[in-house]
Design a protein around this nucleic acid. Structure first.
Lengths: 149, 149
DNA sequence: TTGACAACCATAAAATACCATAATATTATT
DNA sequence: AATAATATTATGGTATTTTATGGTTGTCAA
């Protein structure tokens, strides 16, 4: 199962927001009924994934080197920053305020499927980003975008 | 199993449409009883495939690199646009309205087999497209089109 | 005792399951 | 081979469930 599509949901005054049903389905068989969130390293948005994915990341970065400063820094960046947020009965989470601020999210947020992971964006910010990505893809491969007659 | 042939079916007022029985057979042994749909990057139509195929794509693009902007952009193009649609009891799906608009589909749609994938077209648009393709093939290779006796 | 937070209850809208039927194809029978 | 019987589709309408969202209460700790 993959995180697919983009769904916009609202934050209520208590900061709660529904995780899209399709996204909840992805972690349905997971031990942890919730998601992991952390700052994105590439964009002005929040990164999200399942606990299983986080464990894979851990396995990938873990080289058992207790003396590697680089390794320590990387783990610090990723794991100390990550929060596990469990769903309430109706499938909502409360996104920590520092993450909301980082992503510039106020009243509503966009859940963006990325396959094995997902992101949470300010809807307007994502529009800008997506247009930019499409433009870049277009510039890189014009032959795919416009077939000559 | 492959997606083969072209079948035209109707949309009802609720936007439901039967996925051709032969197409449903292709994903019969899949864990996810449904199809993945997304905008075509090359034509005015909807692209479709099985969840397995989407997972293969995911495996191919997934590199666990949290710092790769390029990878992030690629995933954004592919997965943020895709929807998983499961069959109802009679084998129907509801195609999201934005995809219908993109492909210019109103009352009926044409399922076009492409082997490992398929497409969904406005029937008239597909005719135009098909004629164009034939014309191009004709222009390119007149010698193949008219065999002398 | 106040403020943060979790558990609980409620509801409108949207999505999906359910039931029914008509059209088509497939098989069986004579 | 012709026709009857059966199964499988595609399609239409209704009922039920799920989802997203809002509000209230209870609990624990500062």
């Amino acid at each position: 199962m993959l995180f697919l599509g983009t769904i916009e949901n609202k934050l209520d005054q208590k900061g709660r927001i529904s995780v899209p049903a399709d996204f909840r389905m992805v972690v349905k068989n997971s031990t942890f009924q919730g998601v992991i969130l952390f700052h994105s390293f590439t964009n002005k948005c929040i990164e999200g994934c399942s606990m299983e994915r986080m464990e894979m990341l851990s396995d990938a970065t873990d080289n058992l080197d207790l003396f590697s400063e680089e390794n320590d820094n990387l783990n610090s960046l990723i794991f100390s920053d990550a929060r596990q947020l469990s769903f309430d009965v109706t499938g909502r989470i409360v996104i920590p305020s520092d993450l909301l601020e980082f992503a510039g999210i106020k009243n509503s947020a966009l859940f963006v499927g990325k396959g094995k992971t997902f992101q949470i964006w300010n809807p307007d910010e994502f529009n800008k980003f997506q247009n930019n990505v499409r433009k870049k893809a277009f510039d890189a491969r014009p032959s795919l975008s416009f077939k000559k007659e």
